[in-house]
């Protein structure tokens, strides 16, 4: 419940200029020079921040730079502080998938090899595509935004196309491909938990290694763990939290923490002082 509330608050905060949804314009707020932590298209009419993946490609596609230190720095900072907690709590497209997964039906686990797809998407479509495929003026194009991003299709395309007839007239094959990808992801999200995050999301792929070193981490107290296996059963990502509490695929949903009967899994608290016992405290 607390997680869902945080997801709604972040989604609303990242897209606070809601009136733009009715005018067909997008925000021109100067805050858009800062990237938000989650996947939130900057062409979404209400967006007041930039999508980190979009911004990374925009700078790489520019003739002057091949890699964006500014955007990578922001992403590294988010990753070092929170790791994939961002995916679980502060990603608008993650919220959409979570809501769809609540539909009661038979559920399936994603096969492991498909989980590596997101690393390919990050390297090829986000980092290499804007640099390799350039026009005569040395300007590239954002591969992920152009051909894949379902978040852009859902939060930017549809609201803008509904309110701009001139944009509707310019639609072509690429739009059809993107809508097909979006539909595939929305439908499969009902059956497979966070299928986009597990399989295709380049932002999740970037944050994944930070789970191992971020300030926000889990630890398992093996002295009190009763090895009941409830946490492994509860994990929708198919991880065993006892053996891999900081697994690359963990989005910190905390289902394992809530289901543990002995509270053996806990987030590490870095900034709390250890309790100092004095003589006479224990009788």
């Amino acid at each position: 419940m607390k997680r869902r509330l945080t997801q709604w608050i972040s989604t609303i905060l990242f897209n606070i200029q809601g009136a733009n949804f009715f005018t067909g314009k997008i925000s021109t707020s100067p805050t858009k020079n800062i990237c938000v932590p989650g996947l939130n298209c900057y062409s979404c009419p209400g967006a007041i921040g930039s999508c980190p993946i979009g911004a990374l490609q925009a700078v790489a596609a520019n003739a002057k730079f091949k890699i964006s230190l500014y955007v990578l720095g922001i992403m590294m900072l988010y990753g070092s502080l929170m790791g994939r907690w961002i995916c679980g709590y502060a990603c608008p497209f993650g919220l959409v998938q979570d809501l769809l997964y609540k539909i009661k039906t038979r559920k399936f686990k994603l096969i492991k090899p498909l989980k590596y797809g997101k690393y390919f998407v990050l390297v090829y479509f986000v980092l290499l595509f804007p640099v390799l495929f350039v026009n005569n003026y040395n300007v590239g194009r954002p591969g992920f935004c152009t051909y894949i991003c379902p978040s852009g299709t859902l939060f930017a395309s549809f609201p803008l196309l509904l309110t701009n007839p001139s944009l509707r007239n310019a639609l072509g094959m690429i739009f059809n491909i993107k809508v097909a990808i979006l539909l595939f992801i929305l439908v499969s999200s009902v059956f497979v938990y966070r299928i986009f995050c597990q399989m295709l999301c380049p932002l999740g792929a970037f944050y994944a290694p930070f789970n191992k070193i971020a300030f926000y981490q889990y630890k398992v107290d093996m002295d009190i763990c009763v090895e009941c296996g409830l946490c492994e059963k509860a994990c929708q990502m198919g991880i065993n939290p006892v053996t891999h509490p900081n697994h690359l695929d963990c989005v910190r949903c905390q289902d394992c923490i809530h289901v543990c009967p002995v509270n053996a899994i806990q987030p590490i608290k870095h900034f709390t002082k250890p309790i100092q016992l004095e003589k006479g405290d224990i009788s």
């Binding site: 500014y70 720095g73 803008l160």
Partner: peptide, 30 residues
Amino acid sequence: TMITFGALRGEINIVLEKAIMICFECIGLG
């Protein structure tokens, strides 16, 4: 350090310019 260096070499303007105009790639116009 990377954020500072990137900002100093003018990347912020590229991010802002891209973000305040409708991104045709993002909405599927290629």
